[in-house]
């Protein structure tokens, strides 16, 4: 299967590249969310965020304590869309080639053969990414940014869709390599799952103790459809007032923090907003989409003056103070 993905050229998809209608994508997303929530209890919002990230061609960073279902979330989404799911457990001794793959000498053919690494999947889970040394981290992050990996001078396209869901362990800070600020920027969203509410946890136990529902999870769509849905999202209309609003929001963070949101962040914000509009069944972005996405898309790109953990407060202020409509002042 990985071979098939590997030789799959983006051009070959163009026949099936016709965007879906907005309504179909919206239905699809509903199905997807419903499917995933059979496994993941109580994180509907996070599920929605991951779905919008996938549709908006972004990557997600999940930061939380272990055991709240980060991996399960990634897996169940991958299963639901019938995509290949790869997992890399980042450890301090992990090498870049362990992520990207290596050329292996085949005794039979007497040739080097490329052995693709775990990065060649549609949905890649980078578990505890902050435990690996920066060199290994950057191997994954380069793949995220470029959509391709280079091994021994040969550049290989990654499959489409390609979404990285990385998790970050927040409990053992002295045994980790924090992601550099510049690399954090490459994640479209940074999410926190958090502990489930007591009643939800009870439901979770009821479902998972015994037979885990992930085993019986069926795909609700296929990879082709997902690619077409992404095209739909890319064509969602973003009118000038919305762009201006996003610019104002971002401008506010730049004025009110040590490091504000980068232009890459602005692009990510609008892409996420596009996906959200589609989920809502609209072919155009309204400011509410931007507002819904801004906290998860912008917060980790901001370094506050007080050097607090992230820019959540700044984004909240921005959402409250920046006028949605154009102002005169």
């Amino acid at each position: 299967m990985s071979d098939a993905k590997q030789t799959h050229e983006p051009d070959a998809e163009s026949a099936a590249d016709e965007p879906l209608s907005v309504d179909r994508v919206a239905d699809l997303c509903d199905d997807l969310a419903a499917n995933v929530s059979r496994v993941i209890v109580g994180h509907d919002e996070a599920i929605e965020h991951v779905v919008t990230a996938i549709l908006g061609r972004g990557h997600v960073l999940l930061e939380d304590v272990p055991g709240v279902g980060k991996t399960m979330l990634a897996r169940s989404i991958a299963t639901s869309v019938d995509c290949t799911f790869r997992r890399v457990q980042f450890t301090p001794d992990l090498l870049p080639s362990d992520v990207t793959g290596v050329n292996v000498f085949n005794q039979k053919t007497r040739e080097f053969e490329f052995q693709p690494g775990p990065v060649f999947g549609n949905i890649v889970l980078g578990d505890e990414i902050n435990r690996a040394p920066p060199k290994t981290q950057s191997a994954l992050l380069e793949a995220m940014e470029e959509g391709q990996v280079t091994v021994d001078g040969e550049t290989r396209e990654l499959p489409a869709p390609f979404t990285v869901i990385a998790t970050q362990n927040a409990v053992e800070p002295n045994r980790t390599y924090d992601l550099p600020f510049a690399e954090l920027d490459r994640f479209m969203k940074k999410l926190r799952l958090g502990y489930p509410a007591p009643n939800e946890e009870a439901k979770l136990l009821e479902r998972t103790v015994g037979h885990h529902p992930i085993e019986s999870l069926d795909p609700v769509t296929d990879r082709e459809t997902l690619v077409r849905a992404r095209e739909t999202v890319a064509e969602v209309r973003v009118e000038e007032p919305v762009r201006a609003y996003a610019t104002r929001l971002v401008g506010y963070t730049r004025d009110n923090a040590q490091v504000g949101v980068s232009p890459r962040g602005t692009i990510a914000l609008l892409r996420a907003a596009q996906a959200r509009a589609v989920i809502d069944g609209r072919g155009y972005v309204v400011p509410d989409d931007v507002k819904a996405e801004a906290p998860v898309v912008l917060s980790h790109r901001i370094r506050t003056h007080a050097d607090a953990q992230d820019g959540t407060d700044v984004v909240e202020d921005a959402l409250e103070r920046v006028s949605v409509d154009r102002t005169r002042g």
Binding site: V286, P287, D288, K291, A318, L319, E320, R321, V322, S323, V324
Partner: peptide, 9 residues
């Protein structure tokens, strides 16, 4: 309507 409030909100 408040300053940062969208029409929908």
């Amino acid at each position: 309507r408040r300053r940062g409030e969208s029409a929908r909100e």
